[in-house]
Computed example of a mutant assay.
Amino acid sequence: MEKINIIIADDELLFRKGIRFLLEKELSFNIIFEAENGKRLIDFLSTTEEFPDIILMDLKMPEINGVEATKIIHKTHPNIKIIALTSFGGKSFITNMIDVGASSYLLKNTTPKTVVHTIKQVHNKGFYYDEIVLKIIHENIISATGKRIKSDLDKKLLSSREIEVLELICAQMTTNEIAEELFISPRTVEGHRNNLLLKTHSKNVAGLVIYGIQKKLIEISPGFNS
Rank of each mutant, 00 (worst) to 15 (best):
N194S: 13
G207N: 03
I82D: 14
D11W: 10
T145P: 06
S159A: 12
G126D: 14
N194Q: 14
L166D: 07
R20W: 10
S104A: 14
M61Q: 11
T118W: 13
P62I: 01
N79C: 02
L198P: 00
K39V: 15
K3M: 15
F51M: 08
V189G: 04
S143T: 07
N124T: 02
V209K: 01
E180R: 00
G101P: 05
E139H: 06
L59T: 09
T47V: 11
H117I: 02
E139M: 11
V165D: 07
S87M: 13
E49P: 01
P222T: 05
I55F: 14
D11R: 00
G66H: 06
K113Q: 13
E2A: 03
I80R: 01
I98R: 00
S160A: 09
K71V: 02
V189W: 06
A9N: 04
S92P: 01
I141G: 04
I178M: 13
I7F: 15
S104I: 13
I73A: 07
L85T: 05
I64G: 03
R193Y: 11
H117T: 10
L153A: 09
R40A: 13
K216M: 07
K25E: 13
S185I: 01
M1S: 10
F183N: 10
E190F: 06
V67D: 12
I4V: 01
V133K: 03
P62Y: 13
L13S: 07
D11P: 05
I169L: 14
F15T: 03
M97E: 04
S226P: 02
T86G: 09
P52L: 12
I178V: 15
F88K: 00
K75F: 10
E36L: 08
E68M: 08
I31C: 11
K203H: 03
V115W: 12
I210Y: 01
N225L: 14
M57P: 04
K156M: 11
V133T: 11
E190V: 08
V100E: 10
N176F: 07
M1P: 06
I19N: 03
I55A: 09
Q214S: 01
G66L: 12
E68Y: 03
E12C: 08
I119W: 04
N79L: 11
S46Y: 02
Y211W: 10
L196V: 02
I32N: 08
I149M: 07
P112Q: 13
N30T: 08
T48M: 10
I142S: 04
D152G: 07
I6H: 02
E167W: 10
I149D: 05
L41A: 11
D130I: 05
A171Q: 08
E164M: 14
F51Y: 10
L166R: 00
P62E: 09
N204G: 05
G126E: 15
H192R: 02
K3F: 15
N109E: 15
G191A: 05
I213T: 01
Y105E: 14
E180L: 12
I8W: 05
E24P: 04
E139W: 07
N65G: 04
L59D: 15
R148H: 14
H138M: 09
I163Q: 08
L182R: 00
S151H: 07
T110A: 13
S185N: 02
L85G: 05
A102V: 00
I137V: 11
K125M: 09
G90L: 12
N30A: 12
F127W: 07
E162I: 06
K39M: 15
I136Q: 09
